[in-house]
Design a protein around this nucleic acid. Structure first.
Length: 114
DNA sequence: ATGCTGACTATGT
DNA sequence: TACATAGCCAGCA
């Protein structure tokens, strides 16, 4: 291991791994759950550097519009992401978007946080 | 050390 | 509805 991922990254990966099958979470949502509210970009950055590969349901992370974000690495993974989601039962509308009202992950708020 | 980039989001046009 | 801009902060050169 060349460099140790920051605590924030690991927390982001941990949260992402908790997304239930057949549901999706937005970058901002994960940022909140990971303890870095308002920093959705960090989530995307962490996902890009995710060392866990397929062990993390990275495909369940979508942007606030319910759409698969374009990434710099190419569009092959985009189609893969969509395929994985559809396999879990997530449906896309005519605009290639996911209705967040239906598929958004709704974790329970923590008791430690008032 | 400073400056740029990025799998984002909210807001204005 | 879609496009453009500002703000946010951890990495990297």
């Amino acid at each position: 291991v060349k460099s140790t991922p920051s605590e924030v990254y690991r927390r982001i990966w941990a949260v992402a791994s908790k997304i239930p099958r057949g549901q999706v979470a937005t970058y901002g949502q994960i940022a909140n759950l990971a303890g870095v509210p308002g920093q959705p970009r960090l989530v995307g950055y962490a996902m890009r550097h995710n060392p866990h590969g397929n062990d993390i349901p990275w495909h369940r992370v979508v942007n606030a519009r319910g759409e698969i974000s374009e990434r710099a690495s190419g569009e092959i993974e985009r189609s893969l992401q969509r395929a994985l989601l559809e396999e879990e039962g997530v449906r896309f509308d005519g605009s290639d978007r996911i209705p967040l009202e239906t598929y958004r992950w709704r974790p329970r708020s923590r008791p430690s946080q008032a």
